[in-house]
Design a protein around this nucleic acid. Structure first.
Lengths: 334, 334
DNA sequence: TTGTATGCGTTATCAG
DNA sequence: CTGATAACGCATACAA
């Protein structure tokens, strides 16, 4: 009833009639005489004792907590990443301090300060700020963005994914393709998707266009591009690679509103591998990022005892997933 | 370079040539002589001093942290809720400790223990465990589930939403409707959606069927129901209310695969108000939950200085949102 | 093995 | 307004 103040180790010691140090040992699983252990455990239950993590952290300068800094959990990719990071942390008995930046550059830096005050044991961050002050001496792993040799980065194989998209479109019979993307202001790993696509098209001798818009360009800019290259030309596009599934989704709508059929007239491949309701149907044909593996890798790295001397950039393999916006290959009938 | 050990207040005091207490006051914004303040602030910058939250918490028994316990962030509703809870907490300068239960009952209880050890200042939880031991003396707010008078609950107006769905289907010309839902094992607030729907149908004299399946019933069970009531009857259904948008989404697919058109032959309304990619198109016509308001309310309650004496159950208003699975009303032309 | 004493970094209470 | 000092709860080296 009067649980005003939670019980402390001293309370437990008094209740059990043993010394403080003995309680500490029982709590931490160190060897203690059986009869003492019994008494202590009983007292713990009776008083509903809970270790005080703050005191423990103060003493050990170790919080068993990792901060995850992401824009939000509304976008499915971030939501999925957050989920898998938490799962991986939980498996190691670590807690997660979640920080949403809402894409605001200032907040990215502010949160880094904040979590430093919380003495987190490491930071995993997916950021966009062009200039970020990364504290030394605190394990810091970035997702999708390479800063410098001293800050390890994990990403999917964006370049390879772009190439794979080009290859798939070619296999599926496309002769004239285009790459649609936005967000060119910041050079990060996802920027390589277009590079890989270009590389793939060149190798395959596949004719391609590029539509590269700046961060917050309106959708109408893409519409102009599509109208010109689908309707007002003698050699219309028959395949599109979009930088993200979201863009692919929006592109499908635009292409259809222009009177073209998807996938009959135009085949479209996105990037990310997002699904309806997180784990149901794929939203479009897509290059799937191994989000779970990315999260696990980031966690493993940030908690690595040998944080220095970690590889600078880890690119995890992607795969192609049909999702209704490409045609069925003739040989396969699933 | 040698940032092995972060600077402490004592370090700052030494560097600034002032006493420890003075530094504390500067850090906490208490009145201090200007010249002293200058010296301290300079020393803080020079040493890159960061307050140690653990020590602060140990002293003040106040962590400025609230735990959010949810199944995951993969399901869009949870992702949205998580996001808005974090936003609301951030606005009050509180941090969020995120705990995913994965719908496992044991983990719900385990996490409650864990966050108690972390001395969080409050807990917001969305749980399913039939039996949950809620600690007293720690503000605890539940989402979508009523435990007892001493544990405040915030939810959307599920009953009203069910009624609204019935009313909308009637307005849109339906004559024979059904309610499809699953998850009947646990009685929680969302269970009232069906009750409200029934209530609405009765009041409107609208003929209705009920398909109420247990938690993990396969989709095929719904398919049987739909086949019988859409095809093998003289009086087929022309309107459906689904317990969630996810179910509505799956139902749309089933209905179409049965050869019926949506919304021409059958109109479907879901519940939740989820959108593609979190903030784009609505997935179906739906009853929209005010997720942001729910989150803000829960945060306000859990941080309320007058936690005792809070209302037991707060139901926030919902609204109807057309989303392509219902027909356009004749009078409106948007 | 068990008990005791010290310090982790802060805040708060006092005297100066 | 400033400076010393005692807790806060726990871990740990050390003494018994």
């Amino acid at each position: 009833m009067n649980e005003k103040k939670p019980a402390t180790m001293a309370d437990v010691a008094r209740e059990a009639g043993v010394a403080l140090g003995t309680v500490s040992k029982v709590v931490n699983g160190l060897p203690v005489g059986d009869v003492y252990r019994q008494k202590v455990e009983q007292a713990i239950r009776k008083l509903d004792y809970q270790v005080n993590t703050s005191a423990k952290a103060l003493k050990s300068s170790h919080t068993n907590t990792v901060a995850l800094i992401v824009p939000n959990t509304i976008a499915p990719f971030f939501a999925l990443l957050t989920h898998h990071v938490n799962l991986a942390l939980d498996k190691q008995n670590y807690k997660m301090l979640l920080c949403f930046t809402e894409f605001e550059h200032d907040r990215e830096q502010e949160y880094i300060q904040l979590v430093r005050q919380n003495r987190v044991d490491g930071i995993i961050a997916l950021t966009y700020s062009p200039q970020l002050d990364i504290p030394e001496g605190l394990p810091f792993v970035t997702i999708d963005r390479y800063f410098s040799a001293s800050v390890p980065c994990v990403a999917s194989d964006n370049f390879g994914g772009g190439r794979l998209a080009a290859q798939k479109l070619a296999e599926l019979g496309c002769r004239h393709v285009a790459c649609l993307r936005s967000g060119s202001s910041l050079v990060n790993e996802p920027s390589k998707r277009k590079d890989g696509f270009v590389s793939g098209c060149l190798d395959l001798g596949l004719e391609f266009e590029m539509c590269n818009l700046s961060d917050n360009a309106p959708l109408s800019a893409f519409e102009v591009f599509l109208k010109r290259n689908l309707l007002e030309t003698d050699y219309p596009l028959d395949g599109l690679f979009c930088g993200t599934d979201l863009m692919a989704y929006q592109t499908v709508k635009m292409v259809r509103s222009l009177g073209k059929r998807v996938p009959e007239d135009v085949q479209i491949i996105g990037y990310d591998g997002m699904r309806m309701f997180g784990d149901k149907d794929y939203i479009c044909s897509t290059i799937v990022q191994p989000v779970a593996e990315m999260a696990e890798t980031a966690v493993k790295m940030v908690l690595s005892p040998d944080y220095r001397g970690l590889p600078q950039l880890i690119c995890l393999p992607v795969r192609y997933q049909p999702g209704g916006t490409t045609r069925e290959p003739v040989e396969e009938t699933v």
